[in-house]
Simulated assay, not measured.
Amino acid sequence: MTDLLLIGGYALLAGGVVGAGGALALRLLRGRSILVHILLLLAVTVLAVVAGVVTVAYAMFLSGHDLGVVLVTVGASAVVSLLVGGLFGHRLAAAAVWARAARDRERRIEAGRRELVAWVSHDLRTPLAGLRAMAEALEDGVVGDPATAAEYHRRIRVEADRMAQLVDDLFELSRINAGALRLAPTAVPLRDLVSDALAGVAPLAASRRITLDAPETGWPVVRASERELARVISNLLINSVRYTPADGTVRVEAGRDHSDVWLAVSDTCGGIPEPDLARVFDVAFRGERSRTPDPAHTGGGLGLAIVRGLVEAHGGRVGVRNAGGGCRFEVRLPAAVTER
């Protein structure tokens, strides 16, 4: 019994020394990944066993041969333990990274939702207040002049159109975020879609003395859902026209690179501040300074978020950069087989 207690004491002392060193190492490496911590714990365990075996072997005066056999056995077990622990630690680390990314994404989505609610509440409250005031004025007979009454009716219609557009944007964005968007890809000639979009935005551009420019030829064919792609082009054009100062220019062009079709909308808005470039496609982002739109045309800040959602639903990508005294929005989508 005395010998067993003595052997246990030696083993405990040796293991304690190794364990203290392991605890210090863990403290120094506390900022490292889970995989590093697991491997370190396994290594400390193996070293504690080896230290205890060696200490007890010397205390019991074991032969070098017997000590070598024991150490080889412990070493083989250590290799297996480290391999299994490394595999488990790698999976655990990957799961931790995924969970952290999921939490970050959830926080960003929640922050975006709060920001969206704030923006939409503001954008609905303002026109509603104006509509109520004008309706009460007409109802109470405060406005008797026919010209003024006609102007009130026109402004009521304009505000109603703005609210309808905002609701439509919210519905489209909810379809995208909920995964309820159903695309019907076909071979779509970009020339036709761009021509229709330019015709739709021409009155707004004319009222702001903005020149719309597009080449006559060289338009490729893209594989996309026609309705959704038309909305992408229209939103990009409207965005550029709204943010471009009077007497500016908005240009649309397209081409094909390998298996991709690209479409670019360039303007002379003065550029986007570098810190804001990464946020341009975020929900409810409107920008500041040179990117502040005309208050008469302020929307819900959803147009570019819808663009990104629709483009990504097609398996494409969209980006923006400052170029030539303005901004260049570029969309890339899979090309169709034929061209026109």
Results as ranks from 00 to 15, higher is better:
4 L>V: 11
6 L>G: 04
6 L>H: 10
9 G>M: 07
11 A>C: 11
15 G>Y: 14
16 G>E: 12
19 G>T: 10
27 R>I: 00
28 L>H: 05
35 L>K: 05
41 L>V: 03
45 T>R: 01
45 T>K: 01
47 L>V: 02
53 V>Y: 01
56 V>K: 04
58 Y>H: 13
62 L>I: 08
67 L>I: 12
70 V>K: 11
72 V>K: 13
77 S>F: 03
79 V>Y: 10
84 V>H: 00
87 L>Q: 03
90 H>N: 00
98 W>M: 06
98 W>S: 01
104 D>S: 11
104 D>P: 02
107 R>Y: 06
111 A>C: 06
112 G>K: 08
120 V>Y: 01
124 L>A: 06
125 R>M: 02
125 R>G: 01
126 T>W: 07
126 T>I: 06
127 P>R: 01
128 L>K: 01
132 R>P: 00
133 A>Q: 06
134 M>A: 04
137 A>E: 02
141 G>N: 02
153 H>D: 02
161 D>R: 13
164 A>Q: 14
168 D>K: 03
172 E>G: 02
173 L>C: 04
177 N>Q: 11
183 L>K: 06
186 T>E: 05
187 A>E: 07
194 V>L: 10
195 S>F: 00
202 A>K: 09
209 R>S: 11
214 A>F: 15
217 T>L: 10
217 T>V: 13
218 G>N: 11
219 W>D: 05
222 V>T: 15
225 S>W: 15
228 E>P: 05
229 L>Y: 08
237 L>V: 13
242 R>S: 08
243 Y>R: 14
244 T>P: 12
245 P>L: 09
246 A>P: 05
250 V>W: 04
251 R>N: 13
256 R>D: 10
261 V>Q: 14
262 W>C: 15
267 D>V: 08
269 C>A: 15
270 G>W: 13
270 G>I: 11
277 L>I: 12
278 A>Q: 11
291 R>V: 15
291 R>H: 14
293 P>H: 10
293 P>A: 15
295 P>S: 10
298 T>S: 08
301 G>N: 04
302 L>D: 07
303 G>K: 05
304 L>R: 05
317 R>I: 02
318 V>E: 09
318 V>M: 06
321 R>E: 06
333 L>I: 05
335 A>W: 07
336 A>F: 13
336 A>V: 11
339 E>R: 15
